[in-house]
């Protein structure tokens, strides 16, 4: 068996990489495949918190590459999603504790026993980024509809090709339909027009994400959350299903359409 190694990256920090990695991994595992999540953000460990596994860490990624622990011993199985495992980052070390070659050895090893190996990449374009992409075959770029995030995403896309990671997928996170509607936020088409990559999903800004993280339960387990649903759709698309994109701006009511029509007619 040879699984697929996917890196979740963004360039800019704070756009929702860790949340995306956790929820895509969880949603995939809930559909059946086995998933190993790797927190590659050494020194700033957070994927364990989003998954609610922070109290169960014994060994970490650095222990594995240094030969202190076998990778299968370091993996933590999720409490509720049995196909989902986490390899946590070391908290008391830094990015230089691991080399790209060591990282590739870990992902190569894991893909022999998991359908998907998903890496949560640190922000930035330095060593941590290079480590995280070393063993990856595909990339998911996370951005938000903000200029700085889109700009950094563009830089990252340009840096993947020399490492033979082609056709990255894009996730546009934290879209606010109300702001898009009053033309105060870049919309999905604006971002795609600039970045020219394949859209994997659009995640609405959703308070349920914060609530879910507070509880340590991935938002994809919340049936009612819009963001949770959007992440489940992302997982289905990765599995090759043809899931239509839910309209980023919610369906307009007839009243808005009439006013819009008048506005257009008046030029």
């Amino acid at each position: 068996m040879s699984g697929t190694v996917i890196v979740v990256t963004s360039g800019k920090g704070g756009v929702g990489k860790t949340t995306a990695a956790a929820n895509i991994g969880a949603a995939l595992a809930m559909m059946g495949p086995s998933v190993a999540l790797i927190d590659a953000d050494i020194g700033l460990r957070n994927l364990d918190l989003v998954l609610g596994l922070e109290n169960r860490i014994v060994y970490d990624l650095v222990n594995v590459v240094e030969g202190v622990a076998d990778v299968r011993k370091a993996l933590i199985r999720h409490k509720h999603i049995k196909n989902l495992s986490l390899l946590p980052a070391a908290q008391s070390r830094d990015k230089t504790a691991v080399t790209p070659e060591q990282m590739k050895a870990v992902t190569d090893d894991l893909k022999s026993s998991f359908d998907f190996v998903i890496l949560d990449c640190p922000a930035g374009i330095e060593q941590g980024f290079k480590n995280a992409i070393a063993g990856a075959e595909r990339a998911i770029i996370v951005t938000t509809p903000e200029m700085s995030a889109v700009r950094d995403a563009d830089r990252i896309i340009g840096m993947l090709e020399p490492h033979e990671i082609y056709d990255p997928w894009l996730i546009i996170n934290r879209i606010r339909p109300d702001m898009v509607k009053r033309r105060d936020m870049l919309d999905v088409d604006d971002v795609l027009e600039q970045l020219k990559v394949d859209l994997l999903g659009v995640i609405p800004d959703d308070e349920a994400i914060i609530v879910a993280t507070n509880k340590g339960i991935p938002v994809v387990m919340d049936e009612k959350s819009k963001a949770g649903r959007a992440f489940r759709d992302v997982a289905a698309r990765i599995m090759g299903e043809d899931v239509p994109m839910a309209a980023a701006a919610e369906e307009e009511d007839w009243f808005t359409r009439i006013i819009r029509w008048f506005a257009r007619a008046r030029g």
Binding site: E146, M147, V150, R151, V180, K181, R182, R183, D184, M185, L186, D187, D190, Q194, T256, I259, R260, A263
Partner: peptide, 25 residues
């Protein structure tokens, strides 16, 4: 109605912030 008014006045003030972001980006 509020959206409409905001768009109307936004236009008078010289375009939406989305257009500004688009062009600068």
């Amino acid at each position: 109605v509020m959206d409409f008014l905001q768009r109307l006045f936004g236009r008078l003030e010289g375009g939406s912030s989305r257009d500004a972001a688009k062009n600068r980006l």
